[in-house]
Write a protein that binds this DNA or RNA. Structure first.
Lengths: 234, 234, 234, 234
DNA sequence: CATGAATGAGAGTTCATTCAT
DNA sequence: CATGAATGAACTCTCATTCAT
């Protein structure tokens, strides 16, 4: 079920000298399939169609390999998000673009995205790089939200850092919905709708206008001191 | 001959025969501290102050132990959420209550919550029980949202299932913010604010009223066919 | 050729609970037979008739096992030599006793002695304990020689530290002669003679009285300044 | 793509085609520094500044490399010792000369000497060549001692073969003293003294004349039968 | 000759699981 | 029930050796 191209027939996808990339690719796949702890070097080698030891020719050890996997998956995402967050446009537009990037990434390389989703955001006792990368991206989004707040786009009563986290949570769970099959990824219409909903859920919430008013009105009486700005909006 | 000093947390709850609970408790703590894969049976036994092999008297194997830990942590949560979702009140109130439950759980037993959030909910290749429990809860929330939609509380353009997922994502990331220290858990004011923000973020989104109008206005011209209901409501 | 008492028939020599000693014994044997680098944990386990993992139950790792092997072999020797060197008697008597101890040790446990000879004295980049143990014993002998010098037993022109080293060299090579079969270890007369020769070689040298005179006489004329004390003796 | 900085000791002696010698030299150095088992082919190649695989052009395998290193180091020594032992002079003179050779060798190439002393002479499970070389040299010395005995220079009660071994032990431990720093190799006076002591220790022993008399006298009464010749000579 | 990528057999170590007491 | 010694499969990492270029 696994080794289609074994030993001597492996030249198909690894001709020149980019075995390194072959191995990395294989690592991403195995990683996505089995997770960090379930991913054994032997599996990666087999998946890549190379000898066991060769993995160690290109990567110092398992950790470095998986670190590299992570970097490879994350860096592209980070760069794009950075460009968007620091570029022109309203917060809503940026959010839309970020969601686009995410969905495009999923379309192009669902495994890589799965690695990010499953392993990175919520890694048990994350490795250094991952933590850093996560923090960096958090900072990025946090800054974006701070600017939006200054521009009057983001509600005043919202903590940008926490909000950035919640943004991650929303997007990540959006992914997970794709990965887990909650959303039908074959139907591009459904996919598009899901994309819209993820962005708008974070931006505008899920309530109807009427329900929002109701909330605000009750809030005003119950805890008027806590969230004055929101109350204003009713 | 070697480890005599294993009775640290032992005397507390290991009186008559509820060693089982002692072990379970220890397992939760160790899982929370080291994660599933980083946790050895030996660690659990030591933490519980019992003999190595005793763990296997009460639990068939490591997986069953994890399963039980999960059930123990999850069942209480599920019951409460069920009561709330099927009880009286507006969607917003229910959401508020669910968030309350979550935060209360965190206050009472942060480790158990951490296990649920970090280890169980997003475990690679989830075990049967977990998947089921997760699906059950998803259904619960999904139904709640369907009812809310029927009552005109939930926007019509929202898919309840996906929305239930996003709710999970928001709440879960809210947790993670606590666990990771993004939110200061010592300051009960900050904690209260965070709680409010998590609920309101999901319910009403993060945009200001003005920004929402802007979005809707642009949306109308750009993609008028896609989300007519939302546009209408501005 | 190796596993006489395999798997289930191994109770013979390892009944109660002193498996640890069984393993240590096996380690000594394998160590003596194959040396430090040639000695694999699998071999030790097989030799001891226990499971692979049990070795790690009793010893943290290979190094600790071999360190223990070394200590076990050396400590007895060190204690005896210490008692002798700090006890009563002339230097010659002490030397004789030390040689006796050495030969007795060889008679009782030739493998343990071989371990000491092959691995300890001349270990490549010796482990800490070994170096220390060696240094300690060197100090012991060195001190003994210093006292002998003060008592007029040891020649004045001899450096005690270097002399202690040479003593080691002589005794060690005496061992090696036994181990390598230069001396017939079956013939107890030959063995006794060898013992005498080793001690007397170090104490009185190998030259005849006449040859010694000759040397001293030539020395006097050639290098009179260098070794005046010796010259005196002609 | 990784280790370009491998040309440290390279340019020196790797001109035309004597790469072989370069590699051999490098092997000696690495052996001396890390010992046989601690030395990887990669290390040797790096030290020599040549490609990994080239080592295998010149040497069949690691063992042959070691063998060659050994031969290269030993043959010179053997030839010189042979010339001395079969040449003119008293035993004492020959011994002195041999010690001179040894010390000179150490002065010229301490690493090579270290390899011989530490790695080769006492290797566990010696290779054929080494055993042979060692035996040859032993025979050489043994014969020399037999002739000396015939000439009345060597005591009658001494077994020449064992004595040759002890000579090795003494000289070898003399080396070791240099290598281990027991003797200060910077101070040429100390070095000279050490050389004298090594030779004289073997030839005349370490006891003073008085102590020797004492030994012989006691010996006579205690074990009169065992060593009559020695006793006679006092 | 030269190169260094590729191979794969070991060896050490861990740890879930079993079992005799 | 309780204990912890015993087992051995699984996995990572190393490195001598080969081989295509």
């Amino acid at each position: 079920m696994s080794q289609q191209q074994s030993s001597k027939t492996a030249e198909a996808g690894a001709r020149e000298g980019d075995r390194r990339r072959t191995i990395l690719r294989a690592a991403i796949d195995v990683f996505a399939r089995k997770g960090y702890h379930g991913c054994r070097i032997a599996d990666v080698a087999k998946e890549a169609g190379v000898a066991y030891g060769l993995v160690y020719h290109y990567f110092k050890n398992k950790d470095e390999l998986l670190e590299t996997v992570f970097d490879a998956c994350w860096s592209g995402f980070f760069t794009r998000v950075q460009a968007i967050s620091e570029g022109e446009g309203t917060l809503a537009q940026k959010l839309q673009r970020i969601t686009d990037v995410v969905f495009e990434a999923f379309r192009v390389d669902p495994r890589a995205v799965k690695v990010l989703v499953v392993e990175v955001a919520r890694s048990p006792v994350g490795r250094v790089n991952r933590q850093t990368a996560f923090s960096d991206t958090l900072k990025l989004c946090s800054d974006m939200l701070v600017r939006a707040q200054a521009a009057g786009e983001l509600r005043e009563d919202v903590d940008p850092r926490l909000s950035a986290m919640l943004l991650f949570g929303t997007i990540e769970m959006g992914f997970t919905s794709l990965v887990m099959g909650v959303v039908d990824t074959k139907d591009s219409d459904k996919l598009e709708q899901a994309k819209q909903q993820i962005a708008s859920s974070f931006l505008q919430g899920v309530l109807t206008q009427e329900a929002v008013s109701e909330v605000s009105w009750k809030k005003e009486r119950e805890k008027s001191a806590t969230r004055p700005k929101v109350a204003k909006r009713s």
